[in-house]
Amino acid sequence: MYAFDYQKAGSVSDALAALKAEDAQPISGGQTLIPTLKARLAAPSALIDLSGIAEMKGIEVAGGMVKIGGAVTHQSVADHAGVKAAIPALAQLAAHIGDPAVRHKGTIGGSVANNDPSACYPSACLGLGATIHSSAGDMAADEFFQGMFATALDAGQIVTGVSFPIPEKAAYMKFVQPASRFALVGVFVSKGAGGVRVAVTGASESGVFRWTAAEDALAGNFSPDSVPPAPAADGMIGDIHGSPEYRAHLVAVMTKRAVKAC
């Protein structure tokens, strides 16, 4: 790692003030950022730690919404009785991110802000039609995620929380990449007041996306048999773990399985 200053932020406003420094960067659970720093792939001047900000640590289930603070760990989401009751698919998703030690540190805010194309949470945000709360205001997930590692946030802005509308039913199906255990393809399906949403992570070179053809088909008849054939392989990720065709095929298979599990 290159040298940097470290500062624990006590509040969102503290954090935003500290992030004004040139090349200062936020750190939350650090489970992705620290390995990046170790490889000297980033050289922040300062790391501003968001993980202790009290106002970002709550989970509320009220008014048809589950609101999760940005500094809430994956484990806390997985264990939360209210989340388990309201959106079991979300608790399940959180319970299978990384491994236990990673879940004890990693946070929803960090995951959403990083928008790794193979991360699980972005698919839940998109698949449930969540609202992303940030220091730049509230944004619909559809606007927030803008391609691999890209979001609507600018440098110095942070994710403070995510609100998920509680669906009628939802499920997440992840087919893991055998080495990293990230999603080779993950599909989050929900049916609720906003209709049917199908969000796919891991597959596309453009990051998390909604598979609208499946949404349309499922809106008519919410059944595994309604899931259309695999989407086009163009634009899907191809690497040693799977070709674009394989990923496209898995999108359809995982969608069917998610619908079945709803």
Binding site: G30, I34, Q75, P100, H104
Partner: peptide
Amino acid sequence: VDGESVKACNMLAAAAD
């Protein structure tokens, strides 16, 4: 750390203050 398993190579010492 505070009763939960954590990867000590993936956490800053200062964060464990």
